[in-house]
Computed example of a mutant assay.
Amino acid sequence: MLVSNPINREKPQKLYVQLYAVLKAKIASGELPEGSQIPTEDELCKIYEVSKATVKLAVLELARQGYLKRQQGKGTFVCKRVISEGLTMHTSFKELMLDAGLDFSTQVLAKTVMMPTDDLDAKLNISADTHVFYIKRLRSIDGEPVLLQEAYIPCQACPMLLGEDMVNNSLIDILEKKHSIEITKIKDYIELTYLTDEDARLLGLSGGAPALVMEQQLYSGESQIMYIRSLKRSDRFRFFIEFERNAD
């Protein structure tokens, strides 16, 4: 049943994006109906002749968008997706989404150029040989570390970025106000994780402590311009996200 819409390796589009589109179309058409269990990762690898990493990325993105639900020990199932009606992110984007009115300080722990590792090229939708700016910062409130943030930006998007003041300015403000790169859309994914020993040390916690992780994909038009991964202490403060209805 799932062998139609094969993956085309001649296309420039990444394989996980093609697999995502194939599975999404089958869910939309009812070929994979609500409540049904999709094939396992190993089965999808055999059906579409792709790697497990490709399958994981496609399935994870479908789950994040509400098309699939992963149940521990049982499998992955098609679920009903609730579509918002005309709601969009507020046009004044905030890089640091904590409760409004909080004053925080910023420490830049690292800023350098790197090549994509792991699945970073997929998360930024770039080729594996594209150079990327890596910025790591620690945010504190009243001297208490609260949020550890790692940002990745393709060098070609803003070649002079590393010369900017990242202590007193947000990356979004730098891109928009100094380099005229308008951020038009942000996708946020928030879940619970457990800190590694190094991340826990930076946040003043014990290794294995729970934390909230937010992954943000930022776009300028149709181009993805930045990927941010933020780790926030789950015991202090809250994330703050604002929506508004389009005026159109």
Rank of each mutant, 00 (worst) to 15 (best):
1 M>E: 12
3 V>K: 11
4 S>Q: 11
6 P>T: 05
7 I>F: 01
7 I>R: 02
8 N>G: 06
12 P>S: 13
13 Q>W: 03
14 K>G: 05
20 Y>D: 05
20 Y>M: 04
21 A>F: 13
23 L>V: 09
25 A>K: 11
29 S>Q: 15
31 E>F: 08
33 P>G: 07
38 I>R: 06
41 E>R: 08
41 E>F: 03
43 E>M: 08
47 I>W: 00
48 Y>L: 00
54 T>N: 09
54 T>H: 03
54 T>A: 13
55 V>S: 00
56 K>Y: 11
56 K>Q: 14
56 K>R: 12
57 L>Y: 07
60 L>E: 15
61 E>A: 06
61 E>H: 10
66 G>Q: 11
67 Y>C: 03
69 K>P: 03
71 Q>D: 11
75 G>L: 00
76 T>D: 01
78 V>F: 00
79 C>T: 12
84 S>W: 14
84 S>G: 15
88 T>N: 13
91 T>W: 01
93 F>E: 07
96 L>S: 05
96 L>E: 04
99 D>S: 14
99 D>L: 10
100 A>C: 04
102 L>A: 08
103 D>M: 03
105 S>W: 02
108 V>A: 05
109 L>P: 01
110 A>C: 12
112 T>A: 09
115 M>K: 07
115 M>W: 00
117 T>H: 15
117 T>Q: 10
118 D>G: 04
125 N>I: 02
128 A>K: 12
129 D>N: 13
132 V>K: 01
134 Y>G: 04
135 I>R: 13
135 I>Y: 02
136 K>G: 06
137 R>V: 02
137 R>I: 01
138 L>H: 11
139 R>E: 06
139 R>L: 15
142 D>W: 06
143 G>K: 13
143 G>S: 09
146 V>W: 03
149 Q>P: 05
150 E>N: 10
150 E>T: 06
153 I>K: 02
153 I>E: 01
158 C>F: 05
160 M>F: 01
160 M>S: 15
160 M>I: 04
161 L>E: 05
162 L>C: 08
162 L>M: 08
163 G>F: 08
163 G>V: 12
164 E>W: 05
170 S>C: 07
170 S>V: 06
174 I>K: 07
175 L>N: 07
178 K>D: 09
180 S>Q: 12
181 I>R: 00
181 I>S: 00
184 T>E: 05
186 I>V: 15
188 D>F: 06
188 D>K: 13
192 L>I: 15
192 L>S: 07
193 T>M: 10
195 L>E: 07
199 D>H: 15
200 A>G: 03
202 L>E: 04
203 L>P: 08
204 G>C: 11
205 L>K: 11
206 S>R: 14
211 A>P: 02
211 A>H: 04
216 Q>G: 01
219 Y>D: 05
220 S>E: 09
221 G>R: 05
221 G>M: 01
222 E>Y: 15
222 E>V: 15
225 I>A: 07
226 M>D: 02
231 L>T: 09
232 K>N: 03
233 R>Q: 05
233 R>H: 12
233 R>M: 03
234 S>D: 12
237 F>M: 10
240 F>N: 10
243 F>R: 13
244 E>D: 12
247 A>D: 13
248 D>N: 14
248 D>T: 09
